[in-house]
Design a protein around this nucleic acid. Structure first.
Lengths: 204, 204
DNA sequence: CCCTATATGTTGTCAGCGTCAACATATAGG
DNA sequence: CCTATATGTTGACGCTGACAACATATAGGG
């Protein structure tokens, strides 16, 4: 049921299938247990087929991560659109959306921040996708500064602080190191921490 | 030079040697590339000797993580001792010490927060060591509340926010996702973010 | 329409890995 | 001293990532 039958010798869209298969397997077994051969088997293709589309295992993970960053960017942008620009609510919305993305897509998120043996800068399109996601944060903060809501400081530096907070939250919750008893408790925690940070960032 | 010669059949302190060897190898090759056999070879012992001291590879990593949490606890407690209790300076000191510990001991830190297939709660002494480290944060914050410096709120919840921030910072810097040009820039960033958080936590 | 270049998938192979089982040696306690 | 047990070794198995050689399909020019 996991693989649609393939009558032709060629697969059609093996590259994307590999990415999807990797996500599916990581979701059930964790990223460190993922094997390329497993993914190939899952899709119904020989153990070496993946090498026609990815240089090695890490390159597949880089593609997964890139997809994740693009989805994260979209998620944050959408969340921001529902709030008036240049407000505290806008920053709260994307901060909350960030953590919720990680919790909703743990496999993607873990790969996005897994340790790439070669620096992740060796995958230019991945680095670009990551940068684009980060820019959503920076621009939101900069807009708040223009509106006079946040203190005057390097918006990049402020964004790094905010990113640290939500990234730490996301990982600690995913690792069950910060307990989350219920959806209501989660919402409460996210609001609490965003307000804490934002009041620290406030002007005056 | 990495292994002292062993004339006797028995090693003497293989357990600790394995932990040390694991750290040494992770430091040069990353945690995902670590192999038990590599550690055994490094120490000069057969590929199955480790199994007399650890149930499996993950158990060795759990021991490494536990050692790391104990060292982290010590580091934070020491940092706190140099500051007057119940002050913002105390919290800044342990926050800064936390991130600096991660940067100084990346191998330990990565293992401490690596994804344990079995929940890390399956290693009771590891969970206890982690809890103890966290309690340094909680107690510092509670002391500040008693002194009237931090706002009245669940100190555990405040500690979770603070932990998220420093944990996120530590990982993002380790992964070269937050650039650190120099020691001076690092110090500046740590002070900046701690003050941001603390002013958000301030009473009134 | 064919024919060849190239893209894509397969089979075979290798060393390294984690782990189990069987065996060997050293140490400790009666 | 002698035996039980703790500790280390050797051998094996299936799995893995990766390379090389091969097979098939598709596309584009004659």
């Amino acid at each position: 049921m996991s693989t649609k039958p393939r009558s032709t010798y060629h697969h059609g869209d093996l590259r994307q299938s590999l990415i999807d298969g990797a996500i599916a397997l990581i979701s059930t077994a964790g990223v460190s247990d993922l094997s390329l051969r497993q993914v190939a088997r899952h899709i119904g293709v020989s153990h070496n087929a993946p090498y026609r589309h990815f240089e090695d295992k890490e390159a597949l993970l880089a593609a997964v991560a890139e997809e994740g960053f693009k989805a994260l960017t979209l998620t944050m942008e959408t969340a921001r659109q529902d709030t008036p620009p240049g407000t505290k609510a806008a920053l709260t919305a994307i901060g909350s959306a960030y953590v919720r993305f990680a919790l909703a897509h743990p496999a993607h998120y873990r790969v996005m921040f897994s340790e790439f043996r070669s620096n992740f800068h060796d995958y230019p399109s991945l680095a670009a996708a990551g940068q684009k996601a980060f820019m959503v944060l920076v621009s939101t903060i900069a807009a708040g500064q223009t509106a006079g809501i946040f203190k005057a400081a390097d918006p990049w530096e402020l964004a790094r602080v905010a990113w640290s907070l939500v990234h730490g939250q996301a990982l600690l919750i995913l690792d069950h190191r910060i307990p989350v008893a219920s959806e209501a408790k989660l919402e409460e925690f996210l609001q609490f921490s965003c307000q804490l940070l934002i009041s620290g960032m406030a002007s005056v």
